[in-house]
Amino acid sequence: MRPLLAEGADDAFVDAASRALRAGDGGDPLTSLGWWDLLTELADLTARQAALALFRAQGRELADSAALGALMAQPFLDLTGLSPGKLVAAIPRRSARRGERLVVVGDVAGRSLLIDRPGHGADVVAADEVELRTVAVAGRLTIREIDREPPAAVPAVPEDRAAPARARGRFLGRIAAALEILGAAEAGLLLAAEHAAAREQFGRPIGTFQAVRHLLAWALTDLAAVDGVTATAVRLDGDTPPRHDQVVKALAGRNGRRVCQRTLQVLGAIGFTAEHDHHHFHSRVLALDALLGTSTELTHGLGTWVRETRTDPALPAAALLRRWDS
């Protein structure tokens, strides 16, 4: 699927990942990409860009893998002695009725799960030792909620060592989720743009009507904003201000939802049908927005933090200049 935004170095990584995900040769596309090896090299900019480009490709292709949990577990690999691909983090998701729950994304068979308990450390358990319940969602995304955790014991990673690894894992997870939201929303916009060019009313394509063009333009503007903040976060990494990952994830969730709503308006009734792919891209955006803090929760939390601390969460100009100079 061709990108809707301007092409750059990052798009080469996305296109390569998209081709691998589409290959469908029966093997693990992440292995064929060498993605698991990239997890040990995230300090290098090029490796980091390549590793995180996978998530934008997954959104575009509606691919399903354990990559998000594996990426979040990466800071714990040295602490647990496990190799990349063997450890997958359970991801927090807030339920309106039951509070915060832990879910795993993708196929975790044969892997170990990192069950992080903030304030108490992190445990490592085999996936078959926990009770997993499948969450029925569209979007071609496998999500299982942990219904029963093993009883708490001496944590495999004590809290003093788990805390910095947890912060790093959540930073990586939020940036990755934002990129996957971006990819899914891009694909939804492409469907709407193609429909607007082909569907005719009153003897001409509906894409020539001003109202439709405005919807598509607003959607593209929303995507450009997410593209900019995610690219900056990937490049600057640890040089970003405090809570920048929350800013990126909140913006991606809000804009991704907005793009899906506007493109659905362009598609009209056909966009509501089960046969049309738009609802899968829309559902992928909604499912990812629910992980690691929704756009609403993160925005409210950031607002409270800014009000109480008088902290400016904006990126300093010097950091932005380093991004473009490098």
Rank of each mutant, 00 (worst) to 15 (best):
A192Q: 09
D10M: 13
L4N: 09
A51L: 02
D25H: 12
V229C: 11
G24V: 05
F272N: 13
R199D: 08
M72S: 03
L172E: 01
A211F: 05
R98G: 01
A96H: 07
A176Q: 01
L62F: 02
L21Q: 02
E149N: 02
R60W: 04
I175S: 02
H282E: 15
D64P: 05
G24D: 11
A177N: 04
L71I: 07
A9K: 13
Q261S: 15
L288S: 06
G207W: 07
G81E: 10
L132R: 10
V248M: 01
L21Y: 00
R213M: 12
N255C: 12
W305E: 13
D15P: 00
D15Y: 03
V285W: 11
S65H: 04
D227M: 04
G188H: 09
V135W: 12
D78W: 03
A162K: 01
S283F: 03
E297V: 09
A9S: 14
H280T: 04
A177P: 03
A231L: 09
E194L: 14
V285N: 02
Q201S: 15
A231G: 15
E297L: 08
V212Y: 09
R310S: 13
A126I: 00
E61L: 00
V229A: 02
A51D: 01
A319F: 04
T273P: 05
I143P: 06
A6G: 03
L141T: 10
A16D: 13
A217F: 08
R148N: 08
E308I: 07
R168L: 14
T80S: 11
R322Y: 06
L87A: 09
Q265D: 14
A318W: 12
G69P: 03
L62C: 03
S83T: 14
S95T: 12
M1S: 15
K249G: 01
W36R: 13
G253D: 12
Q210S: 10
A231W: 06
K86V: 11
A193L: 14
S18G: 14
A176W: 01
G228I: 02
D245E: 12
G139T: 07
A66S: 14
L302M: 13
Q58P: 03
L190Q: 15
C260W: 05
G183H: 05
I91P: 06
I91E: 03
L54A: 05
A20W: 00
V108P: 06
A211W: 06
V229H: 05
D15G: 07
E61H: 01
L172V: 00
A225K: 10
Q74Y: 00
T232S: 11
D325S: 15
E61Y: 00
L179P: 01
A165W: 01
T240K: 01
E149Q: 13
D227F: 01
D64C: 07
A153I: 11
D10C: 06
